[in-house]
Computed example of a mutant assay.
Amino acid sequence: MRPDEIATALRQAFRERLIPPGQALNQDELARRFGVSRIPLREALRTLVGEGLIIMRPGLGAVVTELNVDEVEELYGLRLQLEPPLAPGIVERLGQRDVDDLARLVEGMRALTAAQSEEWSTLNYRFHRRLYELSGQRHAVRLVTQVLNLVEPYARVHAHVLGSRPRMQQERVDMLQAVRDHEAERVEELIDRSIRAARTELAQAMAEISIN
């Protein structure tokens, strides 16, 4: 595997909490898993360090980034700055095939059972990525993706452990309808509202856990 392929696989493992926040990475084990020497693995890890997904700690080596409540609130604040302004570009560049792609993702989410939490979160992540890529703002989308990758392990807890999935599902349905109707202001409003609700609920839950 190439270093970029290794980095992609690790990003997914971090997002899906297959390798949870705070876990140290055994480089020998990872090299065996990917069937590579430590040279391409280290190159992949350097890329992920640059994205903030892992940090290097003395005595432990590479560790998956673990966020505290203040950092989560900061990242959701960045989302508020980056994501809602993409709405006009999304609506302007939208085609029927794009609407169909988003609709398939939303319908796929709706069809999943309550037990299929990880599958739902994966489709939810893809929905956001697909939606924002439609804006055509390549550099903004790159930054958004980096932030989404950082908060995704916590967003999954928000959706399922905190019981927010039904509301989030309806938000995606509403976003899809606003996109279909080419209502840029409505799309922007819904993105903003969704991020604010998630930030409030997740930060409150994390604060309560740290207190207890």
Rank of each mutant, 00 (worst) to 15 (best):
86 L>K: 02
144 V>T: 05
64 V>C: 02
67 L>D: 01
158 H>A: 15
202 L>D: 05
146 Q>W: 00
133 E>L: 14
14 F>T: 11
157 V>D: 03
139 H>T: 08
178 A>E: 04
191 I>D: 06
57 R>W: 13
62 A>Y: 13
80 L>Y: 01
120 W>P: 00
175 M>Q: 13
177 Q>T: 15
17 R>L: 09
136 G>C: 11
48 L>H: 10
89 G>L: 04
62 A>L: 06
87 A>M: 09
138 R>A: 14
131 L>C: 11
37 S>E: 11
27 Q>P: 00
117 S>E: 15
125 Y>I: 09
57 R>H: 10
148 L>C: 00
198 A>Q: 13
168 M>S: 14
174 D>A: 09
95 G>Y: 00
33 R>P: 02
66 E>H: 06
89 G>Q: 03
173 V>T: 04
25 L>I: 09
95 G>E: 03
150 L>W: 02
116 Q>G: 00
160 H>W: 01
161 V>E: 14
71 E>S: 06
60 L>M: 12
129 R>S: 12
190 L>C: 03
78 L>G: 01
49 V>D: 11
85 P>S: 05
33 R>A: 10
15 R>P: 03
110 R>L: 12
146 Q>D: 12
176 L>C: 03
202 L>M: 10
114 A>W: 00
88 P>L: 01
106 V>Q: 07
81 Q>W: 10
176 L>K: 01
128 H>I: 10
212 N>L: 15
122 T>R: 07
117 S>H: 10
122 T>E: 10
118 E>V: 05
204 Q>T: 15
145 T>V: 09
125 Y>V: 11
68 N>T: 12
150 L>Q: 11
92 E>T: 10
102 L>C: 06
82 L>T: 04
199 R>Q: 09
85 P>W: 05
190 L>S: 08
3 P>E: 13
112 L>C: 00
70 D>A: 06
50 G>W: 02
54 I>N: 06
198 A>M: 09
93 R>K: 13
209 I>R: 12
62 A>P: 11
73 E>N: 05
184 A>L: 04
79 R>T: 03
172 R>H: 09
54 I>E: 07
170 Q>E: 08
129 R>N: 04
165 R>F: 00
178 A>S: 05
41 L>Q: 06
58 P>F: 08
36 V>R: 02
57 R>M: 14
16 E>R: 14
203 A>I: 12
128 H>C: 07
5 E>P: 00
142 R>K: 10
140 A>W: 04
204 Q>F: 12
44 A>N: 11
130 R>T: 07
147 V>I: 15
9 A>S: 15
8 T>D: 07
209 I>N: 01
198 A>K: 07
157 V>M: 04
73 E>Q: 13
42 R>L: 15
130 R>G: 02
